[in-house]
Simulated scan of single mutants.
Amino acid sequence: MNHNDKYTGVWPVMLTPFDEQRNIDWASLEKLIDWYIQAGVNGLFANCQSSEMFFLSEAESLQLTRFVLDYVDGRVPVVASGHTACGLPQQIDQVGQMAETGVDSVILISNRLASPSEGDDVVLANLQTLTAAIPSTVGLGIYECPHPYKRLLSDEVVSWCAQSGRYTFIKDTCCQIEKIRQRLDLIKGSRLHIANANGQTLLASLQAGAHGYSGVMTNFHPELYVWLCDNWDTAPESAQVVSDYLSAASLLEYLDYPICAKDYQLSLGNFKSVASRTREAGNYYSAHFQSTVQQTLRLGETLKNQLGI
């Protein structure tokens, strides 16, 4: 992994800690940032879906991003989204304000570029309009966010992003290795990087030339993803074992995320509450979810010890 190229490696999708009144808990956010950076991550994706961005006000969205930038203080690069508006004029305003915070790249959300019934031609037209409205000094990216609906990028859109020279980052959620390989061909020679959000296809995507990982499991064991991105080619047998574990552990996402991740951060002493604006926590504690998460992560600790992480 070439560390001179800043859009490679592991980019956690940041959680937003809230207090019991569901206000942002800034002290816990500082601990979380330090925890990510101590794990050796390459950059941070602030104000994304894991940050509950669709449940933040415009003012909170900007305040959150500025806080992350100030506290990180150049230790790692930071990208951010906050691209939640529906109408294009509001999106231009929203994305423009995010660009002014000083983030390395502003990440657009693919499903904001057209409604579910509209075609890829609408996506491309709106993407071109948005791109032209954002100062060229700021990098751009696209995230195939599954909320409120999942919109995968067409080959035409990926090619246009690569050829535009403006785009640095696709957070890829297609979860299909053949499609990832195809996208890698489309972006060859450009400054565009593909960060896979899917643990199950990660190793195969790295072998195919993908640039790293940006997914929810960085909120549990970022060190294992850092190890895999750094060592997949030099320690292939160990990499396969790590990949097999991470594939299985990725299923924890379906156990009331982000509550499961916030509960883990609570157990580490980073968070003071599991409060979320997206869901209630009751089901997580009444089902067997918590013990499943704890046992799966304990297995990960054993793996870290074996690898000397």
Rank of each mutant, 00 (worst) to 15 (best):
E144W: 04
D104S: 15
N126Q: 09
G139K: 11
Q128M: 15
G96H: 06
L88A: 01
A99M: 05
D73P: 08
S81V: 00
D104K: 12
H147C: 04
Y143C: 11
L88F: 04
V78H: 01
G82H: 06
H83Q: 04
F67S: 05
L127I: 09
S105R: 13
S110K: 09
V123M: 14
Q90A: 14
Q91V: 01
Q97T: 00
D73K: 08
T129Q: 14
G96Y: 02
Y143K: 02
R75D: 03
V95C: 07
A80D: 11
R66K: 13
D70W: 03
Y71D: 11
L113C: 11
L127N: 08
G119S: 15
S105C: 14
V79R: 00
G96M: 06
D121N: 13
Q90P: 02
V95Q: 08
I92S: 11
D93F: 11
V95D: 07
A114Y: 08
S117G: 12
A125E: 15
R112N: 10
I134W: 09
Q90R: 14
E144S: 07
L113S: 03
V68H: 04
P77L: 05
A125G: 11
R112S: 12
V76A: 03
N126M: 07
V123G: 01
A133S: 15
S136M: 12
V103H: 01
L64K: 06
C145G: 09
S110H: 01
L69E: 04
S136D: 13
A114G: 09
T65K: 01
C86G: 09
V76M: 10
V106Q: 05
R112E: 06
V72I: 09
D104P: 07
I92H: 04
D104Q: 13
D70I: 02
G74Y: 13
V103N: 03
L69W: 03
V72T: 12
L130D: 08
A114C: 15
V103S: 01
G119D: 15
L108C: 07
A125F: 10
P135S: 08
A80R: 02
S115R: 15
V103E: 04
L140Q: 07
V106H: 08
S136N: 10
Q97K: 15
V76P: 02
I107E: 07
D121F: 13
S105I: 00
A114W: 03
F67P: 00
P116I: 08
Q94G: 00
V106A: 03
V122M: 09
Q94Y: 02
V103F: 02
V79D: 03
E118I: 10
S81G: 15
E118C: 07
D70R: 11
A125V: 12
G139V: 02
R66W: 00
V78F: 02
L64Q: 10
V78R: 00
P89M: 05
L130N: 06
L140G: 11
P135R: 12
L69Y: 10
H147D: 11
R66A: 01
V138F: 01
T137H: 13
P116T: 10
L124M: 12
E144C: 09
